[in-house]
């Protein structure tokens, strides 16, 4: 057991020493992987932020039915009855024009401007939450309500939110596909780098095998090499992604605040960063394993 631990300690030290012996080459190799991984990390932050923003929007199918400014109480009752009686209407909420103004004052930065108005510019309105239905039926319903007397406008503003939600879902899929491709690329990059190491140490490997090194003994320092390289690349990728996020958010914050809206790209989640570093270490290890196995088959060896 102690001998095994010593072998691992020696293999780790050997791998770290060899990485340190070629600092520029090692740094470049780590940076190539880190920069490649930082991009999907940034993408993940962007998608996650967009999804959160879309999630904050009301994406359930609903329409707002705005009445004419001169609509009377009788019109309100008649229209409410028509809306409630519609088979697609799940719930109907009446928003009197006074309440609508209060809500607008409370939820926007237009309070001061609205206070200067002599009269309420908003009409009575109904918010109708719809039962799930296909697009054609929803459009048909909207058109039918538009024709009701004393109805000024019917808006179905759920469509864009739904589109945004679908867009973030699509972006998530693109990201997942990109991550899978990137993982394969990293496997090949680390495999290639470790393969070069194996070739340059061919004499040492051959002598070691002749005097009793097993395949595991030969493989061990290279596995540590790949894993350390992957781990460092994962940590560097996290740092790069966090740095770029911080840099972008400064400008983004100034931009979105002019629209009275706060949007920021989320910093990479610590759990995601840990998972990325661990995943890259595992990919480095797997790439090294494949490279050593390939080169050892090429060498032949004793026995």
């Amino acid at each position: 057991m102690r001998a095994t631990l010593r072998r691992h300690r020696l293999a780790f030290a050997d791998a770290a020493r060899r990485l340190g012996a070629q600092p520029v080459a090692s740094l470049l190799a780590v940076l190539v992987i880190a920069i490649a991984v930082a991009l999907p990390l940034l993408g993940a932050g962007l998608v996650s932020s967009a999804a959160a923003a879309a999630g904050g929007l009301d994406t359930d199918p609903h329409v707002n039915v705005f009445l004419a400014m001169d609509a009377k109480d009788d019109d309100v009752k008649r229209i409410e009855a028509a809306l409630r009686g519609h088979p697609l209407a799940a719930s109907v909420r009446f928003v009197p024009r006074a309440k609508a103004l209060e809500e607008l004052k409370a939820t926007s930065h237009l309070g001061e401007l609205l206070a200067t108005l002599e009269r309420n510019p908003l009409p009575h309105a109904f918010t109708v939450r719809l039962k799930a239905g296909d697009g054609a039926k929803l459009a048909e319903t909207r058109a039918a309500w538009q024709k009701l007397p004393a109805v000024e406008q019917v808006s179905a503003d759920f469509e864009w939110a739904e589109k945004l939600s679908r867009l973030t879902g699509f972006a998530g899929r693109v990201l997942a596909g990109g991550v899978a491709l990137l993982a394969a690329a990293i496997l090949f990059i680390v495999g290639h780098l470790v393969g070069l190491q194996v070739v340059t140490r061919r004499d040492e490997i051959e002598v070691s095998q002749l005097i009793g090194a097993t395949a595991a003994d030969v493989r061990r320092p290279f596995l540590y090499h790949g894993a350390i390289q992957g781990l460092l690349a994962g940590l560097a990728a996290g740092a790069i992604a966090a740095g770029i996020t911080y840099w972008l958010n400064g400008e983004l914050s100034a931009l979105t605040s002019s629209y009275a809206y706060e949007f920021k790209i989320s910093f990479p989640d610590p759990a995601l960063l840990a998972l990325t570093a661990a995943g890259l270490a595992a990919l480095g290890l797997a790439g090294a394993w494949l490279a050593v196995a390939r080169e050892l088959r090429r060498f032949g060896g004793p026995g």
């Binding site: 002749l210 005097i211 009793g212 097993t214 595991a216 004793p302």
Partner: peptide
């Protein structure tokens, strides 16, 4: 097998 044979080689001194 390969591994036991490698371990056996540790107990054989070979002068090449």
């Amino acid at each position: 097998g390969e591994t036991p044979l490698a371990v056996l080689r540790r107990h054989v001194g070979f002068v090449f």
